[in-house]
Design a protein around this nucleic acid. Structure first.
Lengths: 139, 139
DNA sequence: TACTTGCTTCGAGTGCACTCGAACGTTTTA
DNA sequence: TAAAACGTTCGAGTGCACTCGAAGCAAGTA
């Protein structure tokens, strides 16, 4: 639907702010079970509810989930993400700690990128040894 | 000039070729338990033994372990590494498959690097919003 | 009116990669 | 010679991040 399209494009705000759990599941690839679990463990700030108690996710929630998805890719433990989420809920006086946490994460990501580039170099050498069509270069 | 020699010179290894399990554990950071486990599941080609049956690791084993360590960093499943090790044991006729496996891994690594760089960009924006001394440009 | 979707709580199961300990015998080393 | 290191087999435990199912009820939809 248009919902999928708008989020998929640039995660720009569309104005819709009342996504049901199944919509969010479809959008994020997470299961409803996992979404409820995220909320339960505090990884997702309290989600709005309809007047009858059903979850209604906002764009903001979707952005947060996208961010969490990225952090997950870095290998950051869920516990650390929960910590960050908690700090956000605690308000302005936790700004410094939040920034520090993000900066530490940034350093980790940089380290991981370096490790991967290093691995890539080794792979290239090995692949070179197998003599690809381009003719094996030595060493 | 053997391949082993040239590799050794770039990795700081000596010409020693009879490392005990505890030496290898110290060198790699893996436990003796894990090293035996690696051998058991076929992730480590059969290790040489002393005349009394104790393991004697070679430089070659050490290199392999280093390589495995790098692959682990990429998130490659142990099963895939075992597969690659098996192919090496099977001889020359598996060259193509090995190269293909390495190339697929290379593509994965490239993808992961891209994902991490993407995450890094997001982190930089967020950190910028917290107003660091280094002055984030932004949004 | 059906049927689908959602809610809650609870606990168990999964897959991965170790990780550890026991038990007990052999080999190496100080 | 005695302690430390090594060997084997076996099975259980750990930590993480889900993942699933069941039970039973409420709400939304065609």
């Amino acid at each position: 639907m248009s919902v999928t399209e708008s989020i998929a494009s640039t995660t720009g705000l569309t104005g819709k702010d009342r996504y049901t759990i199944s919509e969010v599941a479809a959008l994020t690839g997470l299961t409803a079970h996992t979404l409820r679990w995220y909320e339960r463990i505090g990884l997702l700030p309290q989600v709005d509810r309809s007047h009858t108690g059903q979850r209604r996710f906002t764009e903001r929630d979707l952005h947060w989930l996208t961010f969490v998805g990225k952090l997950r890719l870095t290998g950051m433990p869920v516990a650390d993400m929960v910590r960050y989420a908690e700090l956000m809920r605690e308000g302005d006086h936790t700004r410094d700690e939040r920034r520090e946490l993000l900066e530490a994460t940034r350093r980790d990501v940089l380290t991981r990128i370096t490790e991967l580039q290093d691995t890539l170099a080794v792979l290239d050498i090995k692949i070179g040894h197998y003599g690809t069509a381009s003719g094996g270069t030595s060493s």
